[in-house]
Design a protein around this nucleic acid. Sequence first.
DNA 1: TTGCAAATGTGAGGATTACTCATGTTTTGA
DNA 2: TCAAAACATGAGTAATCCTCACATTTGCAA
Lengths: 209, 209
Amino acid sequence: MDGTAANEQIASPRRAPSQQRSRERVERMLAAASALIAEQGSDAMRMGEVAERAGVSIGSLYQFFPDKRAIVWALAERYTVESQACISEALRDVTDAEGLGRAFSELVDIYYGLFLAEPVMRDIWSGTQADKALRALELADSRANAAFLTAVLKRLRPDADPVALDTTAFLVWQTGEAAIRLAISVDRPEGDRLVAAYKRMALRELLDP
Amino acid sequence: MDGTAANEQIASPRRAPSQQRSRERVERMLAAASALIAEQGSDAMRMGEVAERAGVSIGSLYQFFPDKRAIVWALAERYTVESQACISEALRDVTDAEGLGRAFSELVDIYYGLFLAEPVMRDIWSGTQADKALRALELADSRANAAFLTAVLKRLRPDADPVALDTTAFLVWQTGEAAIRLAISVDRPEGDRLVAAYKRMALRELLDP
DNA sequence: TTGCAAATGTGAGGATTACTCATGTTTTGA
DNA sequence: TCAAAACATGAGTAATCCTCACATTTGCAA
């Protein structure tokens, strides 16, 4: 996993941990950051607090992370990799319209549940769009996820315009993330209704050219 | 990312300008902030720079704006008020499905154009979701805009479940904003395709229960 | 006009925080 | 064994938001 696509702009180089001891310490730093983001949000997260909670010095933090955003970025990348594997698997074996309907619905539920349950993910995807680099990561991630959808669509409709299918998949994915973000920021019952409505709308677009 | 903690919920109130002189100065402050946001983004905007460019002292800035966010908020509110009037007018006279189709398509184009043309708006709506208060404003704004759509839907389908119509309108609006945000962050031709695809998807949902 | 309170204007300085760097400690590998 | 590389430290630096004590201007009643 290179992940250099969105890394161009920031990337002050930092040493990667090569010893067992430092690898464990980096894990503690990430865990501390994750906990703090869950409690207060990434904006309110203080580097000194991360260091203190991880039981390391401020200097050690900067030994492995070039700046504050890099910590959030590292956490975001983990979720990204994890969820991409999940999506790839869910859509791999889809061969017909009904299968797509089932898989898509399931996928939306999984994402919705993930956002509801993971405060860090929630914060990262709804609270760091100000950051150009993270926004680029999100866009690249969204494109990659949409590509799985595109592949399925091409299998279902081999004669359709590939560019149109690509556009549809990208749109469906991006609006899906928006719908879920919306759903988690309102009351639970309304959120559930919104997610259900989104599924209907998106599936119609996916299944009917 | 920001210099100072924003742990407090809402900014403390500040005196509103009551004299002609101060009203003009506040205008200059907002104009300066707008220009700086257009140039560098709201995150990179420095209060000292705003003051200097407006030809006022730092203290004067804080006389009328409790903090940095308040300036961005004030600019955002202007656009909000303006666009709400536009939406209300566009949807007021819709009485049939065809009319809704036309009005909706037009509205999406207007929004798309606005986002493309106004760097400040672009920054505000894609770069301030980190801010809890601004996110709340955006949500309230979205709800208000969706309400215009709901009113139209109720006129077109008086027998349908009002809650379902409400959900549909809210979903369509929110995903529309997401689609447009996506469209302006990719290449122009792809953006145009995405907006067109969104229109198709949303209109199908709006017109067909 | 005059006087005075309220509104407005000012900018040096307080407070916070991301980040650096000189220096000390531990691990590696030959 | 020992030198070099990796790692650890935390006081200090720079940047920035925002305050506050004091100066100036404006509105307005006497």
